[in-house]
Design a protein around this nucleic acid. Structure first.
Length: 195
DNA sequence: CTATTGATGTTCT
DNA sequence: GAACATCAATAGA
């Protein structure tokens, strides 16, 4: 057992996490470690979405694209962004509620991430939802799969302080403060306002 | 550091 | 046809 947190405890903490609504889980996820085939790092930035949220893909009801969001918690919703990038969400408890993973602090498999991204600056490897999926090799083949099974691993970890603010890149419901991140991390896609 | 802009394909109207 | 949960390159402060 190399991990400080055992596999069974991680499973319990995951069950607890996904029994929460995305707005709660998004804040709790900061500090957890996410890897794909052993490559990844600490989650330092997330955003929450749900079906009553005009900015959410699930707002207008189930479609072929967002079907996974309406399915069971603990599964991964992957979508194409701007025709160029892939982004990943973790489905949570409640109707079509999910957490967008927006940034990681790279800790494991740096070589692979550098090779996939074609860039060596650790600060920019996973600072954004599209960048992180490229670095971890996440794509449409992972849409609908479970986060608690290979090649994915999600384990709890410490966090010094969680900041919140407005979500990024949306045009609707911009006033909601549903973006969360580790206070002061240099691996964020963008800094948080001090307020 | 911030602001702007072009690239790109899928989804929805 | 418009909008889009983004990124990289560029220009300027």
């Amino acid at each position: 057992m190399t991990n400080r947190i055992s596999r069974s405890e991680a499973a319990l903490r995951q069950a607890e996490l996904f029994s929460s609504h995305a707005t709660v889980a998004a804040a709790q996820l900061i500090g957890w470690t996410l890897t794909v085939k052993g490559v990844g790092g600490r989650i330092v930035e997330t955003e929450a979405y749900d079906h009553e949220d005009p900015a959410s893909h699930s707002f207008a009801g189930p479609t072929a694209r967002n079907a996974v969001m309406f399915g069971p918690a603990g599964h991964i919703y992957v979508y194409r962004s701007y025709g160029l990038h892939w982004c990943m969400n973790l489905v949570c408890h409640g109707t079509a509620s999910a957490v967008l993973i927006r940034a990681l602090e790279p800790t494991r498999g740096l070589d692979q991430m550098i090779a996939r991204r074609g860039l060596a600056n650790p600060r920019l490897l996973c600072a954004g939802p599209g960048r992180l999926c490229q670095a971890l090799g996440v794509g449409p083949e992972h849409n609908g799969v479970r986060i608690d099974q290979a090649p994915f691993e999600l384990t709890p970890g410490p966090c010094v302080g969680v900041a919140s603010g407005r979500r990024i890149g949306i045009t609707k419901a911009v006033e909601k403060r549903w973006r969360f991140g580790e206070q002061g991390s240099r691996y964020l896609s963008r800094p948080f306002q001090s307020r």
